[in-house]
């Protein structure tokens, strides 16, 4: 349970950082919003994937050991 919390914490930090970076970039260069959104979503996806992996895969692996 605590592990889930830690994972969520890390993912939240990561998502916040990505959002922060994307928003900063967008406000600096409004004409690049389209590209930034695409890249931001990709980064979101990877951060989210880490969380999903930790939730769904890690318990199984640890139990199997």
């Amino acid at each position: 349970m605590l592990g889930l919390g830690i994972a969520a914490l890390g993912v939240a930090l990561g998502l916040g950082l990505i959002g922060f970076g994307a928003l900063t970039g967008m406000s600096r260069q409004p004409e690049a919003i389209g590209r930034l959104q695409v890249v931001m979503l990709i980064a979101f996806a990877f951060v989210e994937l880490v969380f999903l992996l930790s939730v769904f895969v890690a318990p199984g692996i640890v139990k199997g050991m």
Partner: peptide
């Protein structure tokens, strides 16, 4: 440590 993960997996279960 192991208890932690068993907790997590039991939640998922």
């Amino acid at each position: 440590m192991g208890g932690l993960f068993t907790l997590g997996s039991s939640l998922i279960a």
